[in-house]
């Protein structure tokens, strides 16, 4: 199991390198307009892809997950502080599972 430490260090390196390279080289680079817009859209496409379809498998059962998702949408639409969106959704999901 001593090899585990070496593997962890290797994992750390291959994880860190893709994280750091764009920050080091792109920060002060003036990118062409379309590329800038492309990169500006990335947070939103990633959010969409992070939510769907993963959210449906998030709790082990479809129904509580749907209730939790709807609760989060409604609370977020009411522009509640995001902490309450998260807590409200956890409560709704947990209650649905208890029923």
């Amino acid at each position: 199991m001593d090899q585990v430490y070496l593997i962890v260090i290797g994992m750390a390196l291959v994880t860190y390198i893709p994280r750091v390279i764009p920050l080091l080289f792109l920060q002060n680079l003036k990118l062409p307009g379309p590329l800038q817009r492309f990169l500006g859209f990335i947070p939103y496409t990633i959010l969409g892809a992070l939510i769907f379809p993963g959210v449906f498998n998030s709790t082990g059962n479809l129904f509580p997950a749907v209730i939790g998702t709807l609760t989060a949408f409604i609370l977020a639409w009411l522009e509640l502080n995001i902490i309450f969106v998260v807590i409200g959704s956890i409560i709704a999901t947990t209650l649905t599972q208890l029923i």
Partner: peptide, 18 residues
């Protein structure tokens, strides 16, 4: 398992206001 929804709820909470 109820807390499995937490990060998804956060993503939704980040997405809706914009």
């Amino acid at each position: 398992s109820g807390m499995g929804i937490a990060l998804y709820a956060m993503f939704i909470g980040l997405l809706i206001p914009p």
